[in-house]
Amino acid sequence: MDQTNLSPQERKVADKVLILSKDLIILLGIFTISLFGFVVIAFRVFYLDKTGADNKAFDFAHSLVSDKTTKIMEFITFFGSHYFLIPANILLCVYFLLRKRSRYSIKISAIALSSLLIMLGLKLLFNRHRPLIPLLEPARGLSFPSGHAFMSVCFYGLLMIIIWREERPHPVLKWVLLILVVMLLLCIGFSRIYLRVHYFTDVLAGFCIGSTWLFLSSYLIDRIRPAGLKKA
């Protein structure tokens, strides 16, 4: 867009439109890739019965087993459990309410509740049982997709969106925080495979469908936000 003949006010509007277009393209790209990935994984596992990747992942994780590593994995997996994510979501909502930024609180609570319902519905739909060889003790519930992966992406992914949109942090600090969050997500996913309470395809599917719902719900909430409530 040629902005040479535009007034300062018109340039500001044009810049906002350009930024919105870029954000929408990125959102659509991630949404499409994530949804396609989930469909492919589900098709291969439940229709083609191809689970070779699961066995290879278990073999790799087994080669790393030690008492020290197991303790580390137990610690990491806690950050993807409901014991951590429920209070974390509540505290984050309260934090933004105290800062009078209710738009974030609405988005956090809406995504947390909706993602929980979708996760439970998908588990019942696919009805895949847990691995029969847990490293420590059997996990309750069904296996596909991984609830740890799904809920972690929705919580930490939303945290990444908030960090990215905030203006205060220095760009370098932003990237450091984003990389740390991504590393935590990957470690949570691997911890479920290491502890043998989820298959590799469970975790990957959880990441894919979690990302799909995070970006879709975030976009929808921004579109239907109450009048006077700024976009988050």
Results as ranks from 00 to 15, higher is better:
Pro134Met: 04
Phe126Leu: 10
Val176Ala: 11
Asp59Glu: 12
Asp23Gly: 00
Met73Gln: 13
Ile106Ser: 04
Asn5Gly: 00
Phe43Cys: 05
Asp2His: 02
Ala112Met: 09
Ser66Gly: 10
Val197Pro: 01
Val13His: 04
Val94Gln: 03
Phe75Tyr: 08
Ile209Trp: 04
Ala110Arg: 03
Met119Phe: 07
Leu125Val: 13
Gly206Ala: 09
Ile209Ser: 08
Arg225Pro: 00
Ser218Ala: 14
Pro226Cys: 12
Asp54Gly: 03
Trp175Gly: 01
Asp67Cys: 00
Phe150Ala: 09
Leu125Pro: 01
Phe190Thr: 00
Lys68Glu: 13
Phe31His: 01
Gly228Thr: 07
Met160Ala: 15
Leu136Pro: 01
Tyr104Gly: 05
Ile221Asp: 08
Leu185Glu: 14
Leu173Glu: 08
Val153Leu: 10
Arg99Thr: 01
Asn127Gln: 07
Ser146Leu: 06
Ile86Leu: 09
Leu35Tyr: 12
Gly29Arg: 04
Val40Gly: 01
Lys56Gly: 00
Phe190Ser: 02
Leu204Asn: 05
Phe96Gln: 04
Val181Arg: 06
Thr51Met: 08
Phe96Asp: 05
Pro171Thr: 11
Leu113Val: 14
Phe31Ser: 08
Leu229Thr: 13
Asp23Ser: 07
Arg225Trp: 11
Leu85His: 04
Asn55Glu: 14
Val203Gln: 03
Leu124Asp: 11
Glu167Met: 03
Gly37Ser: 14
Met73Leu: 09
Arg165Asn: 15
Tyr219His: 10
Gly29Ala: 07
Phe75Glu: 08
Tyr104Trp: 15
Leu159His: 07
Ser21Glu: 12
Phe46Ser: 02
Leu216Ala: 14
Gly141Glu: 12
Arg165Tyr: 06
Ser81Ala: 15
Val203Trp: 06
Leu184Arg: 03
Ile133Cys: 03
Ile30Val: 15
Phe31Gly: 01
His198Asn: 13
Arg223Asn: 04
Ala205Pro: 00
Phe190Tyr: 11
Ile25Gln: 07
Leu85Trp: 08
Ile26Gln: 10
Val182Arg: 04
Val13Tyr: 03
Phe96Tyr: 15
Leu185Ala: 06
Glu10His: 05
Tyr47Ser: 05
Ala53Asp: 14
Phe84Ile: 09
Tyr219Asp: 09
Val65Cys: 06
Cys93Pro: 03
Arg99Val: 02
Ser7Gln: 05
Thr69Asn: 13
Phe96Glu: 03
Met151Thr: 05
Lys22Asn: 14
Ala88Leu: 06
Leu97Lys: 04
Ile161Leu: 15
Ile111Cys: 07
His62Arg: 14
